[in-house]
Computed example of a mutant assay.
Amino acid sequence: MLLTTLFISLLAFASHASAVSWYFLRYYPASGEQFTSFSGEMTIPPLPQAATYYLWPGLQPTDNSGVYQNVLDGRSGTWWIGSGWCCSNPSLPWGSGFNTYAGEKVTFENKLDSSGSTWTSTLTRESTGETVTDSFALGSKSFNQALFAIELYDVSWDFGPLAFSNVVITSTGTDSSWCNTSPENYNSATTYSITGLSASATGGTVTCNLDSVILEKPA
């Protein structure tokens, strides 16, 4: 189920009650603007055990009806990453993905096409060149939240830092001030660092570049 400020990945539905812990950073664009792309690299952390770890970058729309995300999933005991929309309104099949391992880097790119009707996600495992691409009919959604998230069920944050690099977020509009502002740190729960920030606005597009975003540990 998706709440106004909290969201649960599609993979998280289970038949028993679970204790969930959330750690996330969230950017909002300027009023009236919306995100049009979100890309970067995720460094894969160690996986201490088979458990319900969901680590992801993602976009959430103004109506809080779901979340469009690239999810690193630790349930099998081997990391698997794939893209999808959680969870209904609309109901869409989950995308394809692949296994990945500690120390590897996976690039993610989520982009609205020129027609404004479809978002396309591309994931690449840099060590092998393996790539998967999926498209999602989400053009009707106005995405105004960009998130770096850790979502844990009945397990602690025991895998170390979660690091993103070479992050680029674009939005419509001309006001780039949102990029120069610290992101929301949900419940002040996360110790984090951001380096190499720069912002520009040209031709009705705002571009936010972040050399690194690291969710270091629980605060």
Rank of each mutant, 00 (worst) to 15 (best):
M1I: 05
M1F: 11
I8G: 00
L11C: 09
A14I: 00
A14G: 10
H16V: 13
H16W: 02
A17K: 05
A17N: 12
S18Y: 02
A19C: 00
V20K: 02
S21W: 05
L25S: 13
R26G: 07
R26W: 10
E33C: 11
Q34D: 09
S39M: 11
G40H: 05
E41R: 10
E41I: 00
T43I: 11
I44H: 01
L47S: 09
A50D: 09
T52C: 04
Y53F: 13
L55C: 04
L55A: 03
G58K: 00
L59T: 05
Q60E: 14
Q60F: 01
T62C: 03
N64P: 03
N70M: 12
V71P: 03
L72A: 07
D73V: 13
W79M: 03
W80V: 11
I81W: 06
S83P: 14
G84S: 15
W85P: 02
C86D: 13
N89D: 15
S96M: 07
N99E: 15
T100M: 13
Y101M: 06
F108V: 07
F108S: 05
E109L: 01
D113V: 13
S115Q: 05
T118D: 09
T118M: 12
T118W: 05
W119V: 03
T120L: 03
T124C: 14
R125V: 06
T128K: 07
T128H: 08
T128R: 09
G129V: 07
T131P: 07
V132P: 08
D134T: 11
S135R: 12
F136P: 04
A137M: 10
F148K: 09
D154L: 01
F159M: 13
G160W: 08
L162Q: 04
F164I: 07
S165H: 11
S165N: 10
N166C: 04
V167R: 00
V168L: 14
I169E: 03
S171W: 03
T174W: 14
T174G: 06
D175Q: 00
S176W: 02
S176R: 01
S177D: 15
S177V: 03
S177N: 11
W178G: 03
W178H: 13
C179P: 07
T181P: 04
T181A: 15
S182W: 09
S182K: 15
S182L: 10
P183H: 06
Y186K: 08
N187W: 06
T191I: 08
I194T: 14
S198P: 15
A199P: 11
A201W: 03
A201G: 13
T207Y: 08
V213K: 08
E216C: 06
K217N: 05
A219C: 01
